[in-house]
Amino acid sequence: MLALDTLHGIRVVASPSALDAASWPDNTTVLRLAPDDVFVIGATIEHAAVIATADADAIIVAESGFVGCWLHNDALAEVATHIEWHIPTHRPAFAQGYVAGVPAKLWLTDDRALLLCASPYAHDLSERLKGSA
């Protein structure tokens, strides 16, 4: 069974230009969920100070509502058998869609991938990917 852990970070909804201009610490993972929406794993609200300055109405909140796990090649290949959509071939890439019938996201890097979903889906995603650990 996949062990899906809570991903701590911040969620920022702001103007796309403010998000484009933001820089994040090296040890963070930046997932652009939408043009105006970013989930930065490993970041704290202080890291978004620049955005708060650029966009006074930006929504910047601590985010712990996602769970995920890193997958290496074999596990990713197994997870891919539960995906109907085309997985991007370029790296890095961010993709969102159903995985085993569960709304999920994939952050694909050169050598591994982060599979994540909203925490209320964690149980089903984990159960349905039992063989992918």
Binding site: A14, D57, V61, E63, G65, F66, A118, S119, P120
Partner: peptide, 12 residues
């Protein structure tokens, strides 16, 4: 309209 919207239904 100039607004930002964030759905926190599953985060909170």
């Amino acid at each position: 309209l100039q607004v930002h919207i964030l759905d926190r239904t599953m985060s909170l």
